[in-house]
Every structure is written in structure tokens, then in C-alpha cells.
């Protein structure tokens, strides 16, 4: 049995239906544990004060936003190459989640930047890239919504996602070239020798928990959304049959 068997819609409905409650439950558990730990039981940073607590939303959301695009890209690629409907629908389901995550990262970032940098928004490379990412998500969702025929929509959005990914990376480096930033470099590296620059363990453990929670939430929502889209497509076929008779 090959791995592609899992992408058969019937198979997919079976295993995803069984897996969904577990993944969703685990997501809820990790997310609430991470966020409650982060919000109530972590000390304030000596420079950032209590705003350091925003990190438990901001970093996981940003992480999920980028991974969401990755899922879309892979889903689109699999659809174009192997023409598995499930993968196209998974890419479709991932887009609104990714867009929301991008929005959360932008908003929480603005609330953190206001007291720390003294401004809600700066045209910093990371911030700008995220805004661009958000625009990409919106375009992708709008294209899905605009086209009636599901297979044509899947094809067109897949091409867009792939071209968009290439240009998203290009934009990222173009923006870096354009303006050196205010945003600090990444502080969450799992295996890194330079410990002193990294985030302290008190902040690190709840953050990891919260990131796991966000990722699991992402997975469960993608599963749920894909299941919905599969059902919606079946429904469409049934309606068309009814119309004919």
C-alpha cells in the first residue's frame, strides 16, 4: 500500500474523521496550557516588562502563517503533479487559516511595537514581508472564490500559489535589500550553540508549548476544512443530479 492511498477521498474521510478529535483535543490542551502558562505564570522581562507575554501569541502565529503558505505550496504542487483532489482542497482550506494567522501576527506585533519601538508600524523588512504575505493570501482566497468550476479553480490557484511562492521569496529578499530592519532576529532556535543570545528557558518552555498548540490547531482546522470541502463537492454533485432529474 502506497502513501498516496491516504489521499483517496474515501480513505481520507475515514482516517481524518478518526484523527480529528484527537488532534483537535491535543491542540486545545497545548494551546490553553501554553497560553495560560505564558500569560499567568511567567515573569516580566527586565527590559520589555509585561509586553514579553505577547510573544506567546505573536511568534506561534507568525510561525503558522509561514507554514500555512508552505502547506498551500505543497498541496498545490501535489495537485498539479498527481491530481489528488484532497491535496487541492487541503491547500484551499489552509489559506484562510494562514491569512488569519498573518493578521494575528501583525496585530499582536503592532501592540508590542507601540510601547517598545514607540510606533504601531514601521516599514521594517519583516513587517513588510508579512503584509505582502497577507496580500498573497487574500488574492489566493479571492481567486478560489471567483471561479465556478472546481477543477479549473484548483488548477489556476495552484499555478498562482507556486508563482506566488517564488515571488514571495523574491519579495522577502527585495524588502531586505530595500530597508534594514528594526525587528530583532529570530530568537527561537532549537539547537543553537549561542545560548546567551537566545531566549531564556522561563520564556522558552511555554512558548514551545504554545507553538505546538498553534501547529496542532492549524492541522486540525486544515483537516476539518478539507473534510468540509470534500462534502461540499459531493453535495454539489448531488444537487446537479437532482437538477437533471
Amino acid at each position: 500500500m502506497s502513501i498516496w492511498e491516504f489521499a483517496n477521498p474515501r480513505q481520507f474521510m475515514g482516517w481524518s474523521g478518526r484523527a480529528l478529535p484527537w488532534v483537535a483535543g491535543l491542540a486545545g490542551l497545548c494551546l490553553s496550557a501554553g497560553l495560560i502558562w505564558g500569560f499567568f505564570f511567567t515573569p516580566d522581562d527586565f527590559r520589555q516588562g509585561s509586553t514579553v507575554k505577547i510573544i506567546y501569541l505573536h511568534v506561534p502565529a507568525a510561525f503558522s502563517a509561514i507554514n500555512g503558505y508552505l502547506i498551500m505550496f505543497i498541496g498545490s504542487l501535489i495537485w498539479l503533479i498527481r491530481r489528488h483532489h484532497v491535496s487541492a482542497l487541503a491547500a484551499r482550506a489552509a489559506a484562510p487559516i494562514g491569512a488569519t494567522m498573518t493578521l494575528i501576527a501583525l496585530i499582536t506585533g503592532a501592540f508590542w511595537g507601540q510601547p517598545m519601538w514607540g510606533t504601531w508600524w514601521v516599514w521594517d523588512p519583516r513587517l513588510t514581508s508579512f503584509l505582502i504575505l497577507f496580500l498573497f493570501y487574500l488574492g489566493y482566497i479571492a481567486l478560489w472564490a471567483a471561479i465556478d468550476d472546481p477543477d479549473t479553480a484548483a488548477d489556476l490557484t495552484s499555478v498562482l500559489a507556486i508563482v506566488g511562492s517564488v515571488f514571495a521569496i523574491l519579495s522577502r529578499y527585495a524588502v531586505l535589500f530595500w530597508n534594514q530592519g528594526l525587528h530583532q532576529g529570530t530568537t527561537v532556535t532549537v539547537a543553537d550553540g549561542a545560548q546567551q543570545d537566545n531566549i531564556a528557558n522561563v520564556f522558552f518552555y511555554p512558548l514551545i508549548l504554545s507553538m505546538a498548540g498553534f501547529s496542532l490547531l492549524f492541522i486540525s482546522l486544515v483537516l476539518l476544512g478539507t473534510r468540509t470541502h470534500i462534502r461540499a463537492r459531493r453535495l454539489r454533485v448531488l444537487f446537479q443530479k437532482e437538477m437533471r432529474t
Partner: peptide, 22 residues
């Protein structure tokens, strides 16, 4: 939350509201 009560609570509020909405 010290002097940053507004910022922290707002970002948690909006962030969680968006998640819940999604």
C-alpha cells in the same frame, strides 16, 4: 501587567478573538 496592561490585554483579546472566530 504594570504599565503595559492595555497593550498586553488588547493583543491577547484580539488574538484570541480572531482564533475563536476562525
Amino acid at each position: 501587567l504594570g504599565k503595559y496592561t492595555f497593550e498586553v490585554s488588547m493583543s491577547y483579546g484580539i488574538g484570541l478573538a480572531l482564533l475563536a472566530g476562525l
